[in-house]
Design a protein around this nucleic acid. Structure first.
Length: 843
RNA sequence: GCCGAAGUGGCGGAAUGGCAGACGCAGCAGACUCAAAAUCUGCCGAGGGCAACCUCGUGAGGGUUCGAAUCCCUCCUUCGGCACCA
């Protein structure tokens, strides 16, 4: 007998134990069926999962379960991105070691994941702070070092007094993304990855990723920021004696508007341009420059990033001139507050007539404004002295280039520059090299040692991992505990055997997460980060599910690492797409990308720090994991944000209780008959309709409507069961409910198993073959059609589905209500859309 | 400023050129109950009408079409990304 109550607690723990015992979700490497790699971005183990996490992970789980039932060999792994600041902060706050703290968080997160019945293959779990994992993160660092992709660079970094060095995408409006402290600029020597060397590859690769949304591809494109232009060198004879070896006495600019070169009336450079001090020295303005540079740095922080453009343009005339190579004119050089040193060459040829910023500056300092571009047709309509004209057009006052349009002028000018050795065509990227180092404890130590005699030396691979010390000393939190640990720093120089000092920086966690999807293919390998053939068996990832906050950072770094490893000959990833809809990928890791929406509660993003979380444990206790999962889907489209609502959760709980009650009633019904009456036939039709609809919705990731269709199916079955009550058709309802169990399985897997078993299904529901439908069964005998007259519905007719067009139109004209609207009118046009509607146009 | 996404009942949303509001929530009325909870049944965009029905209605305005939430143009609002990018 089926119990009266839907006891979700007992059901859920029972089936979780069953799945674990049977190893149901373990992915096998040499399974002959087609593979499907379903990856969800692994979390930072915050220690307590909330409804927002559930919403995120339920999506990939439904997809994994669905395709598993469609007989794919699905790999759906999970792990923890466990290095990083929060553990360190918790350790400081609670006076405990980060490793101890994070172990507890990982254990609890894993328990909570299991409580929700996610179909993860836990035998592949990776934890980035585990030496068995970060050993290989360090190995990859050394590999990239060997490839010449990692170098030491004196860079100006974003420095947060709390959190040390921050990446550009960790700085929000001049403040730290984690603690809101103001960020200052500081010079520091850092390990840098030459991501810019891959700028073109990373950009072009986006064209081969139709399985990504345009939004993310556009964001990456903008982030890489390719612009096509020209390099031009302006000689500065006065500094010939001053510049250090290896530097030429010239200023090189990057411009996208070389056609305006004859309108250049001064040179604008960043106050911290590499040659600025020599220029100031030559011009006798060294002291003023120092003052000006300091002012600009302070001003930049005051204004923040948001309204930098509103800043009044200021500058310092350095007192030296440079020479325009095209006409030999000498132009004054200014250090300005509007040219930044980290884009292009840090120097700009200023053309006030045709650039708004240069125009504003020229007006401020009384510099010449020259018109060198006019519209292609006719004469110029703006007063160039009042307003810059940035439109492209045709050159005037430009010597031999007069009359040329932009493409012609650029081509000829580039060619001339190249001939003179003064520049030429150039591509510039906004993307910058990737700063690998963090001055923190809780990360993978950078496997480099410094020897006074031999300089920086890589740690030999055999000595990996370079493990963190057991104890972190947080008595002085302004520096990394590693920098305080003299004993840990002691090392032997691999080159000369003398004493050396370990690098006390740890790697950015973006590096740890930039290759975990490769490790999942071969998680226990102790000889290498992964075996190429195992990666080749699983990559590329077919579905990658995660938040859009990683649209550039994580995804770009992962693509970079994959491309670089591909170039190193360590990877092959050419598996065909399981649906044969997308191109094969040569060096891209993620075939399809799905970004879920964010979960809000009370108008704010659900997060621990905001204190508006709905705890995953509370939900599971109160309603059960199945109910919570169901609402996470049902609330709206998966790619849109969701406001968490308690009453909505109750609605989903009610649905499951109704399913349970109907199953109970059907199983308690006695008579079983082979006859198939009208009600039985209707139930069968309803089943085919539900299977067809849910299948299509799952293929298209429309989970909310997939659940609505299951609710409709249940509504129909309930109403049919009421009509059938006391008759002998419970057999038909048993098969109807078996199908419902299967449809429910990707969403509410525990109740699905329970019903499946009680209804007499073979084996596990989640292992069963996804139900099929017969398209013939979706076709009804008759169909009701609306009849429109001039676009408004004026009547309804019921006709045979297969009826011929003339018969349908005749029936429409014959309809009583329609006839009324036709009185005294002339029908000028008749349209029949089969199965949809009839339209009459009258005059 | 540039790029991207979105705007539909009281609410979450459905419909992507063909009956606007599926499904759910909330609300109202009723049944069961001593009562409540749970459950079940019915109603549920606005205005008009006793009613059958009629008119209006998908951020605003225009357009294409027999027919537009859906396609095109202009504008407004909200959210996300980038930003003195030369």
């Amino acid at each position: 007998m089926v119990p009266e109550q839907y006891n979700f607690t007992a059901i859920e723990s029972r089936w979780q134990a069953q799945w674990e015992e049977r190893g149901t979700f373990r992915a096998v490497d040499d399974d002959p069926r087609p593979k499907l790699y379903v990856l969800q971005m692994f979390p930072y183990p915050s220690g307590d999962l909330h409804a927002g996490h559930i919403r995120n992970y339920v999506i990939g789980d439904a997809v994994a379960r669905f395709w598993r039932m469609r007989d794919y060999n699905v790999m759906h792994p999970m792990g923890f991105d466990s290095f990083g600041l929060p553990a360190e902060q918790a350790a400081i706050d609670r006076q405990i070691q980060p490793s101890f703290w994070i172990e507890r968080c990982v254990a609890n997160s894993r328990r909570q994941f299991k409580r929700y019945g996610f179909s993860f293959d836990w035998s592949r779990e990776v934890v980035t702070s585990d030496p068995a994992y970060y050993r290989w993160t360090q190995w990859l660092f050394l590999k990239f070092y060997e490839m010449g992709l990692i170098y030491r660079k004196q860079i100006e970094v974003n420095w947060c007094p709390e959190h040390g060095v921050l990446a550009n995408d960790e700085v929000k409006e001049g403040t730290c993304w984690r603690c809101d402290s103001p960020v200052v600029r500081q010079k520091m020597e850092q390990w840098c990855m030459r991501t810019t060397q891959y700028a073109k590859r990373l950009l072009d690769g986006l064209d081969r990723l139709p399985g990504w949304t345009d939004a993310v591809r556009t964001m990456q494109r903008n982030w890489i920021g390719e612009s096509s232009g020209t390099h031009i060198s302006f000689a500065v004879p006065d500094i010939a004696e001053l510049v250090p070896d290896g530097f030429a006495p010239e200023l090189t600019v990057f411009t996208t508007r070389v056609d305006t070169i004859f309108g250049c009336t001064f040179m604008a450079i960043a106050p911290d341009h590499p040659l600025a001090e020599f220029l100031a020295q030559a011009g006798g303005t060294a002291d003023q420059l120092q003052q000006f540079a300091a002012d600009c740095a302070r001003e930049a922080l005051e204004y923040g990033v948001a309204d930098a453009e509103d800043k009044p343009k200021r500058g310092l005339r350095l007192g030296v001139d440079c020479v325009n190579p095209f006409n030999g004119e000498t132009l004054p050089v200014f250090a300005t507050n509007y040219v930044v040193s980290d884009f292009g060459t840090g120097a700009v040829m200023a053309v006030p007539g045709h650039d708004t910023r240069d125009h504003a500056f020229a007006r401020e300092y009384g510099l010449a404004i020259r018109e060198v571009i006019v519209p292609l047709e006719g004469e110029s309509t703006v007063d160039i002295q009042q307003e810059a004209c940035v439109e492209k057009g045709r050159c005037v006052n430009s010597g031999p280039y007069d009359g040329l349009d932009f493409p012609a002028a650029k081509e000829q000018m580039d060619a001339w520059l190249a001939e003179q050795g003064q520049g030429g065509n150039a591509i510039q990227y906004r993307l910058r090299d990737w700063n690998m180092g963090r001055q923190r404890f809780w990360g993978a130590p950078i496997p480099m040692v410094h020897c006074d005699g031999c300089g920086w030396q890589p740690v030999p691979v055999a000595e990996l991992p370079v493990e963190l010390p057991d104890e972190a000393d947080y008595s002085d939190i302004r520096v990394s505990p590693l920098a305080n640990d003299k004993q840990w720093q002691q090392a032997k120089c691999p080159a000369c055997g003398g004493t050396a000092t370990r690098d006390t920086d740890t790697m950015t966690t973006f590096m740890c997460s930039a290759w975990y999807f490769l490790r999942f293919c071969d998680p226990h390998n102790e000889q290498a980060p992964f075996a190429a053939d195992k990666v080749a068996a699983w990559l590329p990832v077919d579905y990658y599910v995660g938040g859009k906050e990683h649209a550039v950072g994580h995804l770009l770094y992962s693509r970079f690492v994959t491309q670089a490893l591909h170039d190193a000959g360590l990877l092959k990833l050419t598996k065909a797409d399981h649906e044969h809809k997308l191109p094969e990928l040569a060096d891209e890791p993620f075939r399809r990308l799905f970004n879920q929406g964010i979960v809000y509660k009370d108008g704010a993003k659900m997060s621990k720090s905001r204190g508006n979380v709905v705890s995953a444990d509370d939900l599971a206790e109160r309603y059960g994991a199945d109910t919570a999962r169901l609402f996470a889907f049902f609330g709206g489209p998966a790619d849109q944000d969701l406001e968490w609502s308690t009453s909505g959760v109750e609605g989903c709980h009610r649905f499951l209780k109704r399913v349970w009650r109907l199953a109970r009633a059907v199983l308690n019904g006695q008579a079983i008959s082979d006859t198939c009456g009208d009600i039985c036939r209707q139930a069968v039709r309803a089943r085919h309709r539900a299977v067809a609809g849910v299948t299509e919705d799952l293929v298209n990731w429309r989970f909310n409507t997939a659940i609505a269709k299951q609710m409709e199916y249940l509504n129909e079955l309930e109403s049919l069961w009421q009509q059938a009550d006391g008759t002998d058709e419970s057999q038909a309802f048993q098969s109807a409910l078996l199908a419902l169990s299967q449809l429910l399985s990707p969403f509410a897997p525990h109740i699905a198993e329970e019903l499946w078993q009680r209804l007499g299904g073979m084996g596990l529901c989640c292992d069963s073959d996804w139900p099929l439908y017969d398209p013939q069964m979706l076709v009804e005998d008759t169909v009701e059609l609306p009849v429109q007259i001039n676009g408004k519905v004026r009547g309804r007719i019921t006709v045979a589905t297969e009826a011929a067009e003339e018969d349908v139109l005749a029936a429409a004209l014959a309809d009583e209500r329609v006839a009324q609207w036709l009185e005294g009118k002339q029908v000028v046009k008749r349209i029949y859309v089969p199965g949809r509607m009839v339209t009459l146009v009258v005059k």
